[in-house]
Each structure stands twice: as structure tokens, then as C-alpha cells.
Amino acid sequence: MKGKVLSFIKYFLLIVMSILSIFPFVWMVLGMTNKTIDITAGKLMIGDQLTINFTNLFNNSLNFTGALRNSAVIAVITTVLALILSSMAGYGFEIFKSKTKDRIFNFLLLSMMVPFAALMIPLYRMFSQLNGTPLRSIGINSMFVVIVPSVCTAFLIFFFRQNIKSFPKELVEAARLDGLGELAIFFRVYLPSAKNTYAAAAIITFMNSWNNYLWPLVALQSPEKRTVPLILSAMGASYTPDYGMMMCGIVIATLPTAAIFFVMQKQFVQGMIGSVK
């Protein structure tokens, strides 16, 4: 009897929580099919405006398609580079012996405490000074100005290092004895065993990059370089925003992260708890 009551309470709470977390998504999808006035009035039915909202979204001066392309290119390059660099760094910190490495690592972790708003103006200055040099292609208003600062984050390095802690060092030593070079050990011995870690890191990095708002906002100047969050923000800027159209945009903007998460869900969970296969 007691068990039944307990499990009833458990499921009741779980159902309430799931409704709370799913409701905004349901509302977003329903909003896609309604007129602005119905959305603000709180209508919760499927409307008939879907095609009109879609046409509006792709037929205005804001170039939503271009923004999708920019966001995708930036997110993919960021994710690939971040995974390679941060995993190598994390691997190095854990596998190689050095007296100062923990001190450096602690220093690195400290950088996680600094809020981005404090770094923004110095960062902006730094990158804008590149604009006068041959390195202009990674200066302000280039795609790389958004990619470079998020390629090597303390969090990812920390994340990889934690996971490598459970990686059997004997494998590395055995490989060394067999005459494998260090890079080859990394790519051939470590990497294949850490797919889950990579999957989790990929999801986190991709999501952060896809949703990144503040830095792209200040660093990207030309309108044709804007990413999806910036375009969505510009859409909401009117005295009378077209919410139906915005909901369409938001649904489309949510799809990639949702898709990636669902595909890699299993690996993500295992990666987060740090298992090695």
C-alpha cells in the first residue's frame, strides 16, 4: 500500500514537471499556425496560418535562409575544432607528467569564473586591431571572430580531462612499448574508446555555438553575416511583432539542436557519467 502511494506521488510529480517543461514547446508549435493576435490572446488551438507565416518568414528583408547557413557553418566548424583541440589538451593534462601542469590547470579553471561580459570589450578591441593587418580574415566581422573564442574553453578541457581519468593508462604504456607515436596513441588508442565523451562534448559545443547571442551580436557587423539568434532578435524588435512568423523561425532554429540531441541521446548520457568502452 505504502509503495503504491509513493509511486503515485512520484509519477504525479514527474507528470507535472514534464507538462511544465513540454508546454512552452507545444505552445511554440501551435503558435506557428496562428495569427499574432491569437497568440497574444493565448489561443491554444491549431490555426490556419502556417503557410502564411512560413512565407512571411522566408520572404522578408532579414534573409533567414542566409542566417541558417551562417549559423550552421559556424556551429559545425566550432564543434569540430573545439572537439579536437580541447580533447587533445585534456588528454595532455592527464597523460603527460609535469610539475606545473596542475597549477596551469587551476589557472585555466579560474578563467571559467570570469563572466563573458567582462571579457567582451577587451576581446572586441583585440579582434578589431587585427582588421588593419593581414590577419583581417579573422578580425571583427569575419566568421572566425565568432569561432575562435569558443574553440578552446576551460569547461571542455576540464570535461575531457575528467573523462580521461577513467581511461586505463596501461593502454597508453602498452602502445608506447609497441612503438606507437604519441599522436598516434591519441588518435588510434584513446579516441576510439571515448566516443561517448565526444558525443556529449559535441552536443554541448554545438548547442552553445548555435544559441550564442551576445558575442556574434557585437562582433558581426554586416547584415549578411548575421546568425539565427540575431535575426530572431531583430524580428521581435517592432512595436507590433509578427509572433506567428517568429514562432516559425524559432521552431526551425530549435530543430537542429533537438535532432542532434535525440540522435546522440544515449551517448550523451553515458558521456556525462564518464564511461569508457
Binding site: S61, L62, M120, I121, P122, Y124, R125, S128, Q129, N131, I140, N141, L214, L217, V218, Q221, S222, P223, L230, S233, A234, G236, A237
Partner: peptide, 24 residues
């Protein structure tokens, strides 16, 4: 002509003017 939200314009102006760089 570039459409941006007013908050975005304020944010961009603040960063650029504070860093003394009017590029872009």
C-alpha cells in the same frame, strides 16, 4: 538598411564606442 532590435543597437554601439573602434 539594417534591421536590428533597439537593444541590439544599444549593445553594439556601447561595445564599439567603448573600445574606440568604429569599424563596422
Amino acid at each position: 538598411v539594417v534591421t536590428m532590435s533597439q537593444d541590439d543597437i544599444v549593445q553594439k554601439l556601447n561595445t564599439s564606442l567603448a573600445s574606440g573602434n568604429t569599424d563596422g
